[in-house]
Simulated assay, not measured.
Amino acid sequence: MTWTLPEPMLAAAVPDPVLLPGWAGEPKWDGWRALVSVEAGRTVLRSRQGTDLVASFPEIEAGSGQLPDATAFDGELIVWESGRLAFERLQGRLQRRGAHAARLAAEWPAHFVAFDLLRLEGIDTTRWPYRRRRAALEDLFTERTLTAPWALCPSTTDADTIDEWLTWSAVGLEGIVFKRLDSRYEPVRGWRKYKVRETQEAIVGAVTGPLTGPRTLLLGRYDQGGRLQYTGRTTALPQAAGRAVAGRLAPAADEHPWTGWTFSAGWGTKDTLTVTLVRPELVVEVGVDVARDSAGRWRHPVRWYRARPDLSPGDIAHFGNSA
């Protein structure tokens, strides 16, 4: 019977990074989740949604010769740039094939960070407990002396090590994934994930929805040259927050720094937003994670915390700075 990659095991969000007894922790990388399988000279590289990625990442297929036949990993595709994870370098790879994909692989090579073992030389390991899968994965990396594009994700049962990893947000570490030591690999939310978040201030430059009850806020910061740069958008505002912030917003005058601009409805989509420009006067505090694009914009929608009428736009860190 032909073996196929299983559906990926998922994680449920938790509000704190406490390492419980009987659990292990692993760094959560800012990349693309992927599953890879090698059998009879054929490499399968599949995204979490089931998209075939192998033609877009020839460096992974080229490195598959290092793996024993009939072996499969779960992991994360990542790219490093200037000592930091560069998610934007992964963007656009899906549309690249042949010579274009090879050029990108040479310029910005991807690594596959393996964090779980799904199959080992023809043996389905998904029913093994995590501690056994993890030990076998470590042994495989050691015995085969695997090198790039393969990398072994760290794992620990030491709380102090978890605390140290949480200081790595500057290089793009998103948080921690927790896995129960005796758990099988199943397509359920049996893992737990904690994402590093922090609060920052930004200036409201536009809104979606009516000014009397904005649905989301488009936020900006001034750069060193005095230009208001777009830095990200909030998630949907609670109705009470929308009403409260509406009383502090004023329609833009004829001149606005973002006049004529278009704003994407989401990362990686060509859909655009219908927005209303407002005077860039109101400062708000939002919760953000560590994911950034190459310009320093927040890649994920940010969470509303509160208005900061006690601050002026001039009090806010310049665009590209984190505080």
Rank of each mutant, 00 (worst) to 15 (best):
F141C: 03
V14D: 06
S37G: 11
L249C: 08
Y130V: 02
A99K: 12
G225S: 13
W191L: 13
D310L: 10
D16A: 14
R215A: 09
V54M: 13
K193T: 12
V113W: 12
F141Q: 02
A55M: 09
T43P: 06
H111I: 04
G172W: 00
T167D: 07
R189S: 07
L211A: 07
L277S: 01
A12D: 15
L20R: 15
L219W: 04
F263S: 01
R180N: 11
G122A: 11
G98W: 05
E121Y: 04
D182Y: 04
E174D: 11
T51E: 15
G172Y: 00
A135K: 13
G122T: 08
K179Q: 10
L53C: 09
L211H: 03
T231V: 15
A86P: 04
I123V: 13
V278G: 00
L140P: 02
V54A: 15
T199A: 11
D293K: 12
V177H: 06
M9L: 10
P309H: 01
R215C: 00
F112W: 13
E61V: 15
L282A: 13
G242P: 04
E81T: 12
S169Y: 08
W150R: 08
A136T: 07
V302P: 00
L10G: 05
G65N: 10
R96P: 03
F115H: 15
T142A: 15
P27L: 14
D160F: 07
T208P: 08
I123E: 14
G190F: 05
G190I: 02
A170N: 09
P238C: 14
L85T: 03
E285V: 14
Q239R: 14
R297Y: 05
G190H: 14
R221Y: 01
R215K: 13
L277C: 03
A72K: 06
A86N: 10
L217C: 03
Q200Y: 02
K179S: 07
W261G: 10
L237E: 00
P68K: 02
W80Q: 08
S294R: 15
S264D: 08
F87Y: 15
R144F: 11
G50I: 13
A241T: 12
A34Q: 12
I316H: 02
G226E: 02
Y194M: 07
R84S: 08
A136R: 09
T4E: 14
S169I: 06
S56K: 02
I123T: 11
G63H: 14
L218F: 02
L273P: 00
E138F: 04
P313F: 04
A291K: 08
R127M: 06
L249Y: 03
T2Y: 05
T125L: 00
R197S: 08
E138G: 07
E255C: 04
T125I: 02
P313Y: 05
A105R: 02
